[in-house]
Design a protein around this nucleic acid. Structure first.
Lengths: 210, 210
DNA sequence: ACCTTATCTTACTCCGTAGTAAGTTTACTC
DNA sequence: GAGTAAACTTACTACGGAGTAAGATAAGGT
């Protein structure tokens, strides 16, 4: 069995085990056994438990980012591309649940290097989304220019919402990624255009309009 | 030193250490030492490492929920109460960063009981928010009734957005909780009222596709 | 046939740390 | 001032699991 193939097999199994147990509770012994292999092979190919986890992380983060960026690159307005990117994201989560769990929120538990890798991946997504938001706004409303801070705020809110909606998705398996992305766009995008036109909400009781 | 006081001291220290290192990497030895006490005391009062963590979790989850619910209980329209609840939430995170880290991203790593406690707390918040959303919509627009599924969707998006915005907050320490809550309300609420009036967003067709 | 390199295994070592046994001091009661 | 209960300590044990040493097998290459 050639090394390349074995490595991918090991990573496949490791993703399942890490997703099921979490990084610390997962044991290399179990991963090796499920991969039909002995432990020293894992160490020969992936160096250490941390190296193994990083390999999982990198492979799946690349896959997600590739799907995301390919969707965002496809033609149309920035908002259309943002929508396509959301569809790609929800599609990825629906199709690779274990990968998403691994990528999801393990940063605080892990070593410096791993936490840095996770944070970097999230930062990249954030920048991508912030860019789409800024350009989308600029195109939709030529006059208003969104500051970097505002675009970043919106990006954080959007990414966080998408993230949390993966839970909702789990309880509504019949909902398509497209439908979820569409709902989210409706929640956010329609409002933003109106806010940019000056229609703001304030806690002081403003009644009678709407 | 009476037991009640010691317990709270231990929990205080434990929150810091759990926040800094994560559940597994945190050692009871370190917590005991920082609390100026020996390890068996921790076991005498809190039973086990898991018991210690659960005590931290419960104390801080109660504090957060209390602040949240008190804000949401105060008078005004549902949307006003939702806004107040968001302010309370961001205020809590700003004021008790370590507590938030502990409550925040540790669910996947932990034992059954702990994961269940975290999930339950999140579920409670979600239900609370979903209720506010549903009633807020009903009040703002008497005709449209939001289904439970939709209210839940919005609640997930809102809670996830708020969650993620705590990161943004960390990089913008001069921003007040009130300001952040206001921005988020503007992002979501204004749009929702328009969407309910039928102004939906849809991906504009691109020729040759779809 | 012999050497080398890649794949793979059994059978360990070693360490961190959760959890405990047994004992000590302080303080309060009767 | 003996009895006792709470607050507290030192000094262990136990064990899971990361990582490794040493060697087996198989497949070319010369």
């Amino acid at each position: 069995m050639p090394r390349e193939v074995r490595e991918q097999q090991i990573i496949d199994v490791a993703i399942q085990v890490f997703a099921k147990r979490g990084y610390h509770a997962a044991s290399v012994d179990e991963i090796a056994e499920l991969a039909g292999i002995s432990k020293p092979m894992v160490y020969l190919y992936l160096d250490s438990k941390e190296g193994l986890f990083l390999a999982c992380l990198r492979r799946e983060a690349d896959r997600l980012m590739a799907a995301f960026q390919e969707a965002a690159r496809d033609g149309g307005t920035p908002e259309r591309r943002l929508h396509a990117a959301l569809v790609a994201f929800f599609g990825f989560v629906a199709g690779s649940r274990d990968s998403w769990v691994v990528l999801h929120r393990q940063a605080s538990e892990l070593s410096e290097a791993i936490a840095a890798a996770v944070a970097e991946a999230r930062r990249a997504v954030m920048a991508q989304v912030a860019g789409l938001v800024r350009h989308g706004i600029a195109e939709a409303d030529g006059k208003v220019q969104l500051g970097d801070e505002d675009a970043d705020f919106v990006a954080h809110a959007l990414v966080g919402a998408a993230d949390s909606l993966t839970d909702w998705m789990e309880r509504h398996p019949n909902q398509s990624p497209e439908g979820i992305a569409l709902r989210l766009m409706n929640m956010v995008w329609v409002g933003m255009s109106h806010v940019l036109e000056g229609e703001t909400w304030a806690p002081s009781p403003v009644r009678g309009e709407d």
